[in-house]
Simulated assay, not measured.
Amino acid sequence: MFLLDHRLQFPNVANADDDGLLAVGGDLSPERLLLAYRNGIFPWFNEDSIILWWSPDPRMVLFPEKIKISKSMHQVIKSNRFRISWNTQFEKVIDACSSIKRKSQNGTWITPEMKSAYLRLHQMGIAKSIEVWENDLLVGGLYGIDLGDVFCGESMFSKTSNASKYAFISLAKELQQKEYKLIDCQVYTAHLESLGAEEIPRKQFIEILKG
């Protein structure tokens, strides 16, 4: 396993193991995080762990034009139950993502160190959030890294039914209009697949990212 030091570098993603683990160590400086995302690498580790860097194969992505909206979600959208804001409550969104209880998951990988790192990227205009409101209450949202033509989704939360779906669909529609190449969803989940995300070979993902 490749051990990172103070130098800003990562090994070739082809060196990742079967689970996608590529390297360990290093830091969460803005420079290292940007280098990672631009090369198809992301950090993901538990609170009591050394920093772990991943580049899984295959890669879960959504091409914005392929977003799937179910009949029930069409009804939710038409009802105007929710409203969207863009990048106005980043800290509240990342706090909610870190504290929301998830099935089959103890604790959170969004540690205080991770929060600080992504807040720095937000202040640089790189990490962004999408917020979902119901009756002036923040009920859902997501955040990620905006590379200009690829959006790297990091986490989303929902405090009421369909709120995170609404955020994800709204993001896909917005990025489709802006002609983004894809939304990086990192790893497979049935929930993401139901929204139109699909797995592609890591090599293809990197080619799109670099293209």
Rank of each mutant, 00 (worst) to 15 (best):
R32H: 07
F205L: 11
T160P: 00
S49H: 11
Y118V: 05
E134M: 12
K159N: 14
V132S: 04
Y166R: 02
E91R: 01
D146C: 09
S155I: 12
G26P: 10
Y188D: 10
S99I: 09
K181Y: 08
D95A: 10
S70Y: 14
D136C: 05
E131C: 00
A172E: 01
M1N: 07
D149T: 12
A36K: 03
E207N: 04
E47N: 08
S85F: 01
S116Y: 05
E134H: 15
I130M: 09
M1D: 00
S79E: 08
Q177S: 13
E31Y: 03
R7W: 03
L3D: 01
D149S: 11
K159M: 11
S72M: 09
E174W: 10
C152A: 11
M114H: 01
E91Y: 05
K68G: 04
I145P: 00
L195P: 11
Q89C: 05
G25N: 13
Q75M: 08
E131H: 03
G140W: 07
L35T: 13
V93I: 15
D27T: 10
W53D: 06
F10E: 14
V61D: 10
I200G: 00
V76N: 05
A96N: 12
D136R: 06
K178G: 06
C152F: 08
I110C: 00
N46K: 07
F10T: 12
K115G: 00
N15I: 06
I208Y: 12
Y180I: 10
D27Y: 03
K128Q: 15
R38L: 07
K115Q: 14
R38V: 06
W133K: 01
C97W: 08
E131W: 01
A163P: 06
R83L: 09
